[in-house]
Design a protein around this nucleic acid. Sequence first.
DNA 1: AATGAATGAGCTTTCATTCAT
DNA 2: GATGAATGAAAGCTCATTCAT
Lengths: 191, 191, 191, 191
Amino acid sequence: MAAPDRRTRILDAAEGLFAADGFDATPTARVAEAADVPKGLVFYYFPRKIDLLLTLLQERLPTPTPDILAGVIRRGDPAGSLLAMHRRLGLEDHDSLMLRTVIFRESGTHPEVRSHLRQLRRSLVELTEAALDQAVEWTVARTLRRQAAETFVSVMLDHANAHRAGGALPDVSGAAAVVALAVGAPRPASG
Amino acid sequence: MAAPDRRTRILDAAEGLFAADGFDATPTARVAEAADVPKGLVFYYFPRKIDLLLTLLQERLPTPTPDILAGVIRRGDPAGSLLAMHRRLGLEDHDSLMLRTVIFRESGTHPEVRSHLRQLRRSLVELTEAALDQAVEWTVARTLRRQAAETFVSVMLDHANAHRAGGALPDVSGAAAVVALAVGAPRPASG
Amino acid sequence: MAAPDRRTRILDAAEGLFAADGFDATPTARVAEAADVPKGLVFYYFPRKIDLLLTLLQERLPTPTPDILAGVIRRGDPAGSLLAMHRRLGLEDHDSLMLRTVIFRESGTHPEVRSHLRQLRRSLVELTEAALDQAVEWTVARTLRRQAAETFVSVMLDHANAHRAGGALPDVSGAAAVVALAVGAPRPASG
Amino acid sequence: MAAPDRRTRILDAAEGLFAADGFDATPTARVAEAADVPKGLVFYYFPRKIDLLLTLLQERLPTPTPDILAGVIRRGDPAGSLLAMHRRLGLEDHDSLMLRTVIFRESGTHPEVRSHLRQLRRSLVELTEAALDQAVEWTVARTLRRQAAETFVSVMLDHANAHRAGGALPDVSGAAAVVALAVGAPRPASG
DNA sequence: AATGAATGAGCTTTCATTCAT
DNA sequence: GATGAATGAAAGCTCATTCAT
């Protein structure tokens, strides 16, 4: 594995710093410093600062596709399946989670970022619907399935978003259980 | 109705601009301009820029208390009750919704803001639990009730947060239905 | 002893703060705060900030007069006498020493302060000449006496000035010995 | 002699302005203007204003070393030798005299400057001791030599300091005579 | 292709001074 | 006589961006 080229090093540095400190709070000079490249090179590859963020979104925030569900769905266990999907989404690529945090924060200020967020939400909903479909052994009404998926996606995004905000993280596994019940999973013995 | 004093005008201006453009992206000079006061006056009342935000949080973001549930809960209709609660929280005071958006975005960058966000989440969870309690006519396990409440709070916060991000808003009413089902509401005729 | 009036309290506060932090680095607001008076009152009594300093010099930096030599001169012991004089100058009024430090620093920037410094030096020289006169039992040439006095005054001022600058203080007692030798004091047994 | 580079021009301008008006009273903008460079360039080379002063001290205030005594000491004439040394210290490099004035004034306010002042005093004392050693043809007690040196250094520093304060300069040549007498120079015929 | 010196607009903040009451 | 809200000029500093080399 050769040393990453300098363009890649710049993107690596930007990804980490944007996630940690925020886009606005990160001077391009610090990106260059963290990437150990001359300052001019950053602007050679990315003429405007926003291009750093845009490139990150395009190259490093792939739309999650249904194939990541392979192996994580346990038929008959929707709650466990949703949780496993969430884990796969987040753990497979920790930085992309951070990047999602960034787009949340910047989507208001930088219109170019919005469509990425919209699309991310849309494909997460589709992914979750697919996961539910594969996990339940009974039939779920189309509308309910959509609502359940959207609910879980909100929790996942809130989780990602709250991650940096610090403090009590929302309980994803609880939400998985709630959603599973809603789509008809058998109610466990009272606890 | 007397003209609001100048300190109030400054806070009004800051609230609107912070919500619209973000805290960091709003120069104090523009706050002064929007409030139609000289630049120096902003710093007379709020020595540091962050004090503007902090004051906004303290004076304008009251912790939601259980009494706002009065009159919105319909016993036997948890979904409708949650939705009504959400409407009351958000619509009664449109600006506070914007303010919540702000603290979401700034809580990562400005540590002083975090505790406000944490506390907001905590009291929203308690409020939602109380709403569920009053709305259901049967018994809900303590753990499930908490999970259901946290799920709905995530959706509400995600909704507030996504508001500015633009695009598809998460469907709060769907989430209310999902949560209601999870706590045992009767399943409607299939759709 | 009645509580000092407010004008006095302002001067007290200014004296301490100017000596400790410097004239330029002390905002009038902090003077008011330290004096526990409203900010407007400072400017009521002292229309310009510099008037605070000027008043301090006029009212609190009395020209040292020969009468302070009374009781400190030991005839036949010029070194001891100079040292005692220095002690009397400094200890009698500790704040005035600090004030001298201030005028040193400000005399360059504020022309009004210069004449005070000049006059201080002049009267110190005269005082030291008088002290030498009274302390020696033999005749000292007029020119030498003047040179000896100026030398000792330089050391005293350097001492006052270095006081705040921190670090190794010049050795006033050594200078007293040197000056005494120069005007003919008997050389001690070799050491 | 090529035109000095812009960094040098900035330091030149700062040196003159700091000496003339004081560090605090000199805006960086005026330094830039005097150096005929854009304002941003000052901060490009010297990120904080204090770095201008610190750099000046490091690059332009060399510790005086014993070799500057070469050729100025006249054996048998300590007074003349001290005076020549003083002249060499001050006149050889007029700007460094101004710089010394600056550090005197700023050493109270800017702690980073103190050590420079301490070190300057220390090495001046050592230099003066060496000068006395080489100038006298007889033996001087170690303690007396140190006291004599410190006395003369105080006079030199007071002289440098008083320079800007305006008005009567202390008489360095008189002090040289006094110190010479103290260390045993033959007393001239009465004057 | 690559660089780093250079730039200037714009930011937050400070504070002596004014003045209506 | 007293006051404290009000003001605005000016300060130090940041930084995206440009461009000669």
